[in-house]
Computed example of a mutant assay.
Amino acid sequence: MKTMITMVRSLAAVAALAIASPAFAAGAKVEIDYQDWSFAGPFGYYDRAQLQRGFKVYVENCSACHALSRVAFRNLAEDGGPSFTEDQAKAIAADYTVVDGPDDFGDMYDRPAILADRFPSPFPNENAARAANNGAYPPDFSLLAKARAPQRGFPGFVFDIFTQYQENGPDYIYSLLTGYVDPPEGVEVPVGQYYNHSFLAGEFISMAPPLFEEAVEYTDGTPMTVENYARDVSAFMMWAAEPHLEDRKKIGFRVMLFLIVFAGMLYFTKKKIWRDVEH
């Protein structure tokens, strides 16, 4: 009885903390625009065309400031990703220059990137990145879809267990990219910053609105709108953060199917063995 009381008190404390703490409060400071993603749910998958469009948005609109340092060029041609051909991935890599070495004289040198290389950072170091962005440090895009996933808080995260909602990262990124609006009356935006009602760290953000209508040319007929750009690049960032999502979900389904069949076999085996034994 004492143990049960202790457990109840602990659960109550956790619930109170989840409700009271702004770090866990669902939507306490940000407005999240929830999207319908192809990779959501137990049977989710990446839309290859969307990933390719998102990569195009990243290259033409985001790569000048944001690194993608954990993604190798070969990943673009691997199963479960954007599904570029190997030749296409090689052509993409050839557009980049990476630092290699040392050579026979002990010097570092530049060379065209190959499939084994990772995307090089647009800046040599953090100080250079801050100097080029008014003191703000542009985060690496590799894991951002996981690292910038605001917690839903209590009781939201309880429902997420049953709905299998795991897309708070791309939902937040999409909301941030489309969240640039005029500030409310009486709100003064600091110099060098912009008003964004979906920014996790507050209403003011140092990044200028990165997307605008027809900023990137789509060749597959998809409307060239800010919303589509934001949705496509968010999906691409989700893939960068979790490139094996499809395999994970396929394995998870097979494991659950096996456990269901195995449990049924155990049940009927037990019934057969103990059918003549009185209980």
Rank of each mutant, 00 (worst) to 15 (best):
V57S: 01
D36A: 12
Y229S: 08
T97W: 06
P112I: 00
T225N: 04
F119C: 05
D104L: 13
A208H: 06
D171Q: 04
P124H: 01
A147Y: 08
M108A: 08
Y194H: 15
F24Q: 06
R275L: 04
I92E: 12
S234F: 02
T6K: 13
E203Q: 14
E185W: 02
P138C: 09
D103W: 03
D33M: 09
L245I: 12
Q166T: 15
A149C: 08
F84M: 09
S121I: 04
I251E: 08
A129D: 12
I19K: 10
Y195A: 07
L200I: 15
H279M: 13
E213H: 08
G156T: 01
M238N: 09
I161D: 00
T178P: 07
A201H: 10
F24E: 00
P210R: 12
K2H: 12
F253P: 00
Q35Y: 03
P150N: 10
D100V: 14
V71W: 00
C62V: 05
E278C: 07
E188R: 11
E86D: 11
Y195W: 10
Y58A: 04
A67I: 05
D100I: 05
K272Q: 13
G202E: 04
S142R: 12
L176R: 09
V57A: 01
A235P: 07
M237H: 00
E203M: 06
S63Q: 14
T225E: 00
G221L: 09
E188V: 15
D182I: 06
P102R: 13
M1W: 09
G54Y: 02
W239V: 05
E242C: 06
V189E: 08
G41A: 11
A77F: 08
I19A: 11
